[in-house]
Design a protein around this nucleic acid. Structure first.
Lengths: 224, 224
DNA sequence: AGACGCTTGTGAACGTGTGCACAAAGTTGC
DNA sequence: GCAACTTTGTGCACACGTTCACAAGCGTCT
C-alpha cells in the first residue's frame, strides 16, 4: 500500500466516524471525498487498496468501511504508548482525550526531572527516566512519544530503541537518527509555521505585484 | 520553488543553526545533508533554488546560507500569531519557546470559555473569543493557530478568515474547509500515531511470518 | 426481462519528486 | 602556472503520486 494512502486512511476514518455519528448508513465516494477534503478519484483508488468494499451504483456502507479501515490500520488491538518528557507539551499529550478512543492507551509517563517524578498527570504517576527500559519491557510498549527538550531527544530515542520500541513520534525540535527498522515520525510546530510564513510572504509579494500592475493599468488609463 | 523543497528549508535552517552554535564556519553538502537526515544531491538541488550560494571545492558558508534561507522563508520580519483555544495544547503552544527565536511572536491568546478569560498565560492575558475579529485587525495578524476542540474548529477558522487571517495552523482533530487563497496546514496527533500503528502492525505481521517460516524450517529439520 | 441511471474500480496520461552521475568550477600544493 | 583534488550545480532517468476518463457492475423502474 502506498505511503500516501496510509497517511490518508486516518482522515477517511475520521470522516466516516463523523458520518456514522450523524446516522448516515451509506456514502458515495464523491460525498466522502468532499468531507475528507480530497479528490474523489483519489479516494476510490485509496479504498481500492483495501479491497472492493463499495457497491457500484450505491456507494460504501459507512460502518463496514469504517471497520475495514480500522482493521487495516491495526486499531482493533490497543497500543500501549509511553510519553517521555512531561513538560507543557507532555502534559497536553497525556491529557489529550483523542488517543483512547482511537486504540491508543497511554501506559506510562516518564521524565528526567526529579521534581516532576511522582506527580500525577492524567491519572498516571510520572516515573523517572532511569526506569524507562524496565517500563518499556514490562508493559510491552512498541510506540514511544518524545516530548523532551531538543538536546535530550537523541538520547531518549536511542534508549527507547534499545529497550525495544520500534515506532517513535518525535515532538522535540531536533533531528534524530534511528536505526533501520524503526519508524520515526516527527511533528514540528515551528517548521509548520515556517512553511506558512513562506507562503504568506509570497502572498504579500503577489499582492504588491498586483498592486503595481494595477498601478500600471491605472497610469495607462490616465495617460492613454 | 517546489513545495517539497519549501518543507525542507526549515530543516536545513535548524541544522545550520546548530552548526553555527558549534562555531562551524563552512559546511559541505554532504555534511549538512547528514545532519539534516537527507540525501546530499537533494540538499544541493534544494539549495540551488535559492541561488548559487555554494563554493565548489569548499562548500557553503554557514552564516551566509542561514541568512539566505531565513530571508527566503520570510523570517526576517516577525509574524504576529494568535492562538485560539487555551486548553492543554494551547497552553503548551503559548509557552513553547521555539517560536520567538524563529520570527514568530505570539500576539494574543483567545478562548471561548469565560472561566479562562483574564487568566495570564505566558505573559499574556487570555481574551474572549468575541474579541477575535477586533484583535486580528488591530494587531495585523496574518497567522492563526487553532487549538480548540474539534467541534469549534470550523467556526473559528471561518471567523479568522473573515477577519483577515490568510494562514492557519490547525491542531484540532477536525477536517476544516477554507476558501481559496487561505493556507491551511494541520497537525494531527492521533493521525500520526495511526500511521505508526499501521507500520507497527505490518512489522509484527512480518515477524510472525518469519516465525512461521522458522517453524517450517524447524519442522523440516526434525522430520527430514 | 430489459433499459436506464448511477457509482465504483482502474487503465493510462500527466506531473512532481528523487537520486545518480558527471561536467564545471573552485582550491590547494608544488 | 599547472596538476590533482574537492565539491557544487544540474541533466537525465526513474519512481511515486495524482487526476482524468470510462468500462464494468449494480440497483431501479417500467
Amino acid at each position: 500500500m502506498p505511503e500516501a494512502t496510509v497517511a490518508r486512511l486516518p482522515l477517511y476514518l475520521r470522516a466516516l466516524t463523523t458520518l456514522a455519528e450523524r446516522g448516515v448508513a451509506t456514502v458515495s465516494s464523491e460525498e466522502l471525498a468532499a468531507s475528507a477534503g480530497v479528490n474523489s478519484a483519489k479516494l476510490r483508488k485509496d479504498l481500492s487498496y483495501l479491497g472492493s468494499y463499495g457497491t457500484r451504483g450505491v456507494g460504501y456502507e459507512v460502518d463496514f468501511l469504517r471497520h475495514q479501515i480500522t482493521r487495516e490500520i491495526g486499531l482493533t488491538q490497543d497500543w500501549a504508548v509511553v510519553i517521555v518528557g512531561i513538560g507543557n507539551l507532555g502534559h497536553a499529550l497525556a491529557n489529550y482525550g483523542g488517543f483512547a478512543s482511537r486504540g491508543f492507551r497511554i501506559a506510562a509517563l516518564v521524565d528526567a526531572d526529579l521534581s516532576r517524578v511522582g506527580e500525577e498527570v492524567a491519572g498516571l504517576k510520572v516515573r523517572h527516566a532511569d526506569e524507562l527500559e524496565q517500563i518499556v519491557q514490562d508493559l510491552g510498549i512498541a510506540i514511544g512519544v518524545v516530548a523532551t527538550p531538543a538536546r535530550a531527544a537523541q538520547l531518549v530515542c536511542d534508549r527507547l530503541v534499545a529497550a525495544g520500541v520500534t515506532s517513535i513520534l518525535n515532538f522535540a525540535p531536533a533531528i534524530v537518527q534511528v536505526p533501520e527498522g524503526v519508524d520515526l515520525r516527527k511533528v514540528d510546530l515551528s517548521t509548520e509555521l515556517q512553511i506558512l510564513a513562506y507562503h504568506e510572504q509570497r502572498k504579500n509579494g503577489a499582492a504588491l505585484a498586483l498592486t503595481a500592475e494595477q498601478a500600471a493599468e491605472l497610469a495607462e488609463a490616465v495617460n492613454g
